[in-house]
């Protein structure tokens, strides 16, 4: 055991009747005068002011734009709720939400679960048996796709997934599995799955790195005690790893879900929503309206609805997270 350092060595002599009260008077033995503490809310001031200028005001301006018709130049023309009425009846927009379920699976659910297992394996198995350097090397390899700009990732994967002489089909050919060769991105039935595969490849390093950092916080004594009791790797995973990094698991799930709802870049570089709209998602639709069709007012309405949906989802999710914390 490492010798406990000063802060934790002395169990804090709690003043009775003031369980962690921040402004509680100091104990009678202390001669220190009672000081007024800075309110915690003050720490939010710099971040809050910047948020107001960079996000809240532009959000309200975007909201105003969504009630206009505008080509990006000239004067916006007020049209009331026309954009929203159009959006309600826009089958293309609502259909694109269905694809987003698959995208959320590929960008949030699968990477978080895979990342959890991989992080626990690296931390509690590879790191202990082959040394932390091996674990760090493997983590770096798995994280690397996160570093790649999405535009570059798109080019490389279109080389790999190309129907003729693409790496994947060549590889299948070498293995004698010609029957499995596909037009990975061009076949409407397969394109969404191919895009999902690329997304998992890109995304999995993100939860992995967060989880491994979270595991640093866990008291090694917990693992040692479990090992002495003969707990298997799986038992340690379920009863130590997962509960200890619960906050990180929530963060990863919510963050990747938000990212998946805004995932137009992947779609843009891999399939441009095709073939035949088979991979279109709402965020791609919003981007198309803003910049390809320069229907800024309508694009603003799409973005507003999308943002409201994401915010509602965030609130529900955070509620669940904080009720879980109070257990």
């Amino acid at each position: 055991m490492t010798p406990p350092a000063s802060v934790t060595a002395t169990p804090s002599p709690k003043t009775p009747g003031t369980p962690g009260g921040p402004d509680a008077p100091t104990g009678p033995g202390r001669s220190r005068p009672v000081r007024r503490q800075i309110p915690y809310a003050l720490f939010l001031l710099p971040g809050g002011l910047l948020l107001l200028v960079v996000i809240i005001v532009p959000f309200l301006m975007n909201l105003a734009l969504s009630f206009t018709e505008w080509e990006g130049v000239g004067e916006p023309r007020w049209v009331g709720a026309d954009n929203y009425r159009e959006l309600l009846g826009d089958a293309e927009f609502w259909a694109s939400f269905r694809h987003n379920i698959a995208v959320t699976l590929a960008m949030a659910v699968i990477p978080t679960f895979l990342g959890l297992v991989l992080a626990a394996g690296l931390f509690d198995f590879i790191g202990k048996r082959f040394g932390p350097r091996t674990a760090a090397f493997l983590r770096a390899c798995i994280y690397l796709p996160q570093v790649l700009p999405i535009a570059v990732a798109g080019i490389v994967w279109s080389w790999i997934l190309a129907p003729d002489s693409g790496a994947l089909n060549e590889l299948l050919g070498l293995a004698g599995l010609e029957s499995l060769q596909q037009d990975w991105l061009g076949d409407p039935g397969k394109a969404l799955f191919s895009v999902m595969g690329v997304m998992v490849w890109v995304q999995v390093g993100f939860p992995l790195v967060i989880f491994m950092a979270g595991l640093q916080r866990v008291d090694p004594a917990l693992y040692e005690a479990a090992e002495i009791d003969g707990a298997s790797w799986w038992l340690r995973f379920r009863h130590i790893t997962v509960p200890q990094i619960r906050p990180e698991i929530f963060v990863s799930l919510l963050w990747c879900t938000i990212a998946s709802l805004k995932a137009f870049a992947f779609i843009y570089v891999l399939t441009k929503g095709g073939p035949g709209g088979a991979t279109s998602v709402p965020s791609y639709y919003s981007f198309e309206n803003f910049f390809d069709n320069t229907r800024v007012g309508y694009g603003a309405a799409v973005a507003t609805v999308l943002a409201l949906i994401i915010i509602a989802l965030t609130v529900v999710f955070l509620r669940r997270q904080s009720s879980g914390e109070e257990d």
Partner: peptide, 18 residues
């Protein structure tokens, strides 16, 4: 939730106002 809006808002919606 307010702070998270910096991320939940699609960036293309921020471009014109910013």
């Amino acid at each position: 939730v307010l702070f998270l809006m910096a991320n939940t808002l699609p960036q293309e919606a921020l471009v014109y106002p910013l």
